[in-house]
Write a protein that binds this DNA or RNA. Structure first.
Lengths: 336, 336
DNA sequence: TTGAAAGCGATACCAA
DNA sequence: TTGGTATCGCTTTCAA
């Protein structure tokens, strides 16, 4: 194995010089730089990252903290898109990523602590936002740099948030439905623990009030069977003209339930949801959605964190990613 | 920050002793073990993994090599399930994982080389199998331990493969369709570059021949629109009673196309596919599938690799994961 | 069963 | 602009 010392010896310089060449230090002559670079190539030298980490005390990796939820959550296209964009930003800056794997909140906290204490990561990106989150608190208390993808909480000036304006997004989507002529809407949400769902409900209710739309919102009805029962109980075809879901996987289950009940979209009822992905694009039928641009959420989050980590003069700032509505076959103008 | 030396000093022992306690060395007295453990707890000592890596020259992380394909590939539930199960096995054994991020085969090879040369990983899991793969060759040539999830190639005794018997799986699925009374089937496949798709076609054709089933197989027709055109051209309702797809995302597009054409499943036509996941379970309607148990593929692959890495006496072996058919609403007995 | 000390391969400080 | 060298935190001989 070729080490820095080998290079130094062969090039007739000191280890420090070689190190400087690698870090692109500017106080080094063009001559020695060339010489050293050449030798490095000849020898096929590859720096040992571990050794570097030990002395710099920097891991050059960031931790990705996922929600403590079922495996299905991790298959949610929203996450894979965010994750992919984070990875590619990191890749560019020669950072690695490491993802949490815990399913209970207790395990998760411990996992994060272990990552911090063992110096395995330089910072975190939290892929959720939740009030009274012990992990949030731990990171703040221990001054570990991190950014949150999700809603701002506590108004802590030392924490960066990257989010959409979900109230607005939901307001726009509902307003769009209202514009199509809907006067009775059903709103389905997985739960109301996370901030994002609260906001989407808020936006929905605002339009309902403004435009005098009959409505009902239901939480925690998630599986295909549960939804089927709900649709039957609500006599869906008769009492509603549209259904809004907060999530693309929930929407998937809804469509499956409607298919089972032989309710046609958009003729018998119309549907729309949040978070665009192949799931919505290739649904039965393709769904009108709010695109929240997960790839931008991830990109900005990663860039912001890396900036904090690498630049002295980086300035804390939160970001709001704009959203847009994509119209597809699941909605259309209602005949009056 | 608490280091091993701090613990040693406080416990009045040497660093070596503390190190031995951590590694569960057996030549250490019960007394000192207890004493040291207690101090470690008191001080909240967490070993610095980086330092350990440097001296042991082991990274305790394994590299996951993904196909060089579009982002959609990474959203395929098959991958997320395999990945999740690999991660959880690694987590248990205190290994980390690192995933490749390259999209071109050239970049991918370089990424793998860099991982090897910088000692960033101890071994790899390849999440695909392909003939004449330069990465495969590189790993073999450089004696890097790895296991392949996918079909055995080259019959190399020094490489471990974990796979399903896809010929058999496809045979069984097609036989099942035949048993329902189907006598004309359409077979859709994304491509025939990877071994897995070749095998699935082979199994399909075998049954068609045995049971005298009219059939047609089509590659590279993937998007919703392409499929829609195909279905129209083939006059699908009239000429076929069933459609087999090789992949759950392809199946998703098929269902969307059928929905658009107002073709009902299973009344107008029946469908089935490979790889179970929420996509198939919550489809319109839920799909009959071959479960290839991605979680077991990942689990066995990870366990096999870790065994090689950790145990002296580990013995090379390839594994075949059994498959099974899950019957759902998309198929039923055909009335004759 | 324990301790002393020599590294592992980089970086970074202090001198020159 | 360069070199010498202590150092990061741990493991691992070798000796006691």
């Amino acid at each position: 194995m070729v080490t820095l010392k080998d290079v130094a010896k062969k090039a007739n310089v000191s280890p420090s010089t070689v190190s400087r060449v690698m870090s692109n230090s500017k106080d080094i002559s063009e001559n020695t730089r060339k010489k050293v670079t050449k030798i490095m190539d000849e020898l096929g030298y590859v720096p040992n990252i571990t050794a570097r980490k030990l002395v710099t005390n920097q891991s050059n990796t960031i931790g990705l903290v996922l929600k403590t939820i079922s495996i299905e959550m991790r298959q949610n296209p929203f996450f894979t898109e965010v994750l992919t964009s984070i990875s590619s930003v990191c890749e560019e800056k020669r950072f690695s990523t490491i993802m949490t794997t815990s399913y209970t909140s207790e395990d998760l906290l411990n996992e994060v602590k272990a990552l911090v204490l063992s110096k395995a990561v330089d910072g975190f990106i939290l892929l959720y936002s939740m009030e009274n989150d012990p992990i949030y608190k731990y990171l703040v208390d221990n001054e570990v740099p991190f950014v949150v993808i999700g809603k701002k909480i506590n108004n802590d000036p030392n924490v960066m948030f990257v989010d959409n304006d979900n109230i607005e997004a939901s307001y726009n989507l509902t307003k769009y439905m209202s514009g199509l002529g809907h006067r009775s809407l059903l709103f389905l949400s997985e739960n109301n623990t996370y901030e994002v769902n609260k906001d989407r409900l808020t936006g929905f209710l605002k339009v309902c009030k403004e435009d005098n739309i009959q409505h009902k919102y239901v939480n925690e009805v998630v599986s295909r069977d549960e939804i089927t029962n709900l649709l039957i109980n609500e006599d869906i075809r008769k009492n509603y003209t549209g259904i809004v879901t907060t999530d693309s996987m929930l929407n998937l289950n809804l469509l499956s339930a409607l298919y089972k009940l032989n309710v046609n979209i958009p003729d018998d009822i119309q549907t729309c949801t949040f978070t665009d992905s192949y799931l919505s694009e290739s649904a039965c039928p393709p769904q009108t959605v709010v695109n929240i641009y997960p790839e931008n959420l991830g990109k900005i989050a990663a860039k912001s964190l890396l900036e904090i980590l690498q630049k002295e003069d980086a300035v804390m700032h939160s970001s709001i990613i704009p959203t847009s509505i994509i119209e597809r076959d699941s909605t259309k103008q209602l005949k009056s």
